[in-house]
Simulated assay, not measured.
Amino acid sequence: MAEISSEVLSLFRSVQETFPSKSLGDGRWFLVALAALTGGGKPELAADLYLYLIQEQERSNPESRQVLTRRLREALVKCVSIIGVCRPLEAIFCIDKVQRPVDKDYSFSRENWKCDEANYERGTAWLHRIYSHNIGPIDEKFQAHKDFGWISRNITYGLYLSDHTILNDIETELVVLAGIMIQNLHHETAWHLRGSRRVGMSSEDVEAVQQCIEVVAKFANINLDKIPHVADIEHEV
């Protein structure tokens, strides 16, 4: 097994300790770390994260490692919609390189996906849950940019983000928030700070998650000087 550097180990432990595990669950911190590292230009560290996670006693057998792989892979699949394909692809290939053959998972989560009316309705429903009454101005902009409106409902939300068979609603929003915030995007970060509150996270939990992302940003030498905090959007929730 490859050795994880002390700096990377310190990073993982810092994120794990900062994450609000008591309220959001211990098995979710690594989703934030994975999305932030991948979006922040450190996709190769997905392999180190995998090796770190399989050292835990509950992941000592192939079945538990396959479950972990599905969760990591699903997080990276969702990241494609907010980061692009290349960095998530690099991350999953790096994970694959350090896996034992017996620990690999060969399931195919979207084998039967169709871009049909049901997909559109599912994507639209999740879009409205995140944006609620704030969707109007965005839809108005889409009138002059219909390709993006179509992509948002059918692909970003229909194909990627409304699929909660592996990662549930809160886990999905953790991935999205981390993947967006690490890119230092003001408006989109604000939307998903708000969205995180709307799917049931407390303001304290969202702030703690942001601190996790800031830990990764500092490690990756990324300046997050454009992003708001949950207190800035709380009046909109």
Score class of each variant (00 low, 15 high):
A2F: 13
S6W: 03
S6T: 15
E7M: 09
L9W: 10
L11M: 09
F12R: 01
R13T: 10
S14W: 03
V15D: 01
Q16C: 08
E17I: 03
P20E: 02
S21R: 00
G25F: 02
W29Y: 15
F30K: 04
F30V: 05
V32S: 06
V32R: 01
A33D: 03
L34H: 04
A36V: 05
L37Y: 12
T38V: 14
T38S: 04
G40L: 12
G41C: 13
G41H: 03
G41V: 13
P43L: 03
A46K: 08
L51G: 02
E58M: 11
E63R: 12
R65V: 04
Q66T: 05
Q66M: 15
V67N: 13
L68F: 04
L68T: 06
L72P: 00
L72V: 00
A75G: 15
A75Y: 02
L76T: 04
G84I: 05
V85D: 08
V85A: 14
C86G: 07
P88N: 11
E90A: 14
E90W: 05
E90K: 14
A91T: 10
A91W: 08
A91M: 11
D96C: 10
D96M: 12
K97D: 00
Q99V: 09
R100H: 14
P101L: 07
P101F: 08
V102P: 04
V102W: 05
V102M: 12
Y106T: 09
S107Q: 08
S107R: 09
S107E: 02
R110N: 10
E111W: 11
K114V: 11
C115I: 03
D116M: 07
E121Y: 07
R122H: 08
S132K: 14
S132R: 15
S132M: 09
H133I: 14
H133P: 00
N134Q: 13
I135L: 13
G136A: 14
P137G: 10
P137I: 08
I138F: 06
D139P: 00
E140N: 09
A144W: 08
K146C: 05
D147F: 10
S152G: 01
S152K: 03
R153Y: 08
L159R: 10
Y160M: 10
Y160C: 09
S162Q: 03
D163R: 01
H164Y: 08
H164L: 06
T165V: 06
T165K: 05
T165Y: 05
T165C: 09
T165R: 14
I166R: 01
I166V: 15
I166G: 08
D169I: 10
E171L: 01
E171N: 06
V175N: 00
V175Y: 05
V175A: 02
V176R: 09
V176K: 07
L177C: 06
A178S: 14
I180W: 04
N184F: 11
L185T: 03
L185Y: 02
L185Q: 13
E188L: 13
W191C: 02
W191E: 02
L193M: 09
G200Q: 07
M201Q: 11
S202K: 12
S202T: 15
S203R: 13
E204T: 14
V206F: 04
V209K: 00
Q210H: 12
Q211F: 02
C212I: 00
V215T: 15
V216H: 12
K218C: 11
F219N: 07
F219P: 08
F219D: 02
F219M: 12
N223Y: 07
L224A: 13
L224Y: 09
D225G: 10
I227D: 00
I227F: 05
V230W: 00
